[in-house]
Design a protein around this nucleic acid. Sequence first.
DNA 1: TGATTATATGTTCACATGTACATATGATTT
DNA 2: AAATCATATGTACATGTGAACATATAATCA
Lengths: 133, 133
Amino acid sequence: MTQTFPAESNAQFWLSMPCIHPETIRLVQEKMPASSVLAELADFYKLFGDGTRLRILTALSIAELCVCDLSALLDMKQPAVSHQLRVLKQGRVVRARREGKVVYYALNDEHIRNVLQVGLEHLGERQEVEEVF
Amino acid sequence: MTQTFPAESNAQFWLSMPCIHPETIRLVQEKMPASSVLAELADFYKLFGDGTRLRILTALSIAELCVCDLSALLDMKQPAVSHQLRVLKQGRVVRARREGKVVYYALNDEHIRNVLQVGLEHLGERQEVEEVF
DNA sequence: TGATTATATGTTCACATGTACATATGATTT
DNA sequence: AAATCATATGTACATGTGAACATATAATCA
């Protein structure tokens, strides 16, 4: 019989494990943002974590576009585009402007462009590193 | 009978739709990164799009930690932590260093810290905007 | 070598999520 | 008002994914 685990999830058990560095843990605990904040941040990043949405966002970072434009540009069915636009709108990453029958979408603020930029830069640097090997 | 759709996904069909702004689409097409690049970028963001992984990354942005520390800190079962660490390692977001039985994890590079920073800043700004209303 | 400790892996399952399809809504035009 | 066009929504379904659990591996120590 090897290591035995408790029947149910039990914080006390894990906190009593012998291998931990208590001081380090306390330090990190103090400096960590609240779990709720990080959950919210995760939801934000999740919006960028899908190929379709990222293509939409990249396109909107270049120009304001209507659903129909996006549908043609991305070669996707219109309902699929609308669906993702709704997700992005609920996440306050894009905003919509109606002009007659046409709805134009744009990035909600400049900050979104930054996030895309930082990600692309990281990818670029990683590629360069890999080329060396 | 309203709008009829083609039987299968067909780029030509969508490009021939009457509502599009062809010039804008061409402009965006020229400036857009390749789909493969954006898919890779999406995979990168996906790593940040989970509460657990984000808590791990935030913790590691403060201090180098072993699996056991993380398990205690996050109040999670050790296998679950190991699982996410593997995902993060495969995504080259963290790196591991073995010291005897203990494996210490750390952020792979400073760029990761930047990404976390940018996200937290965005969240901060958004909160301030919401407080006004 | 055998025992113990720290970590990793494999399997299963519940759940989230993206798309297709059909259809509804909203706005313009005749 | 009816027709038409652009967009939105609802449902069904397939796929991806995170955690629990059991177990395997790696390293140290008696």
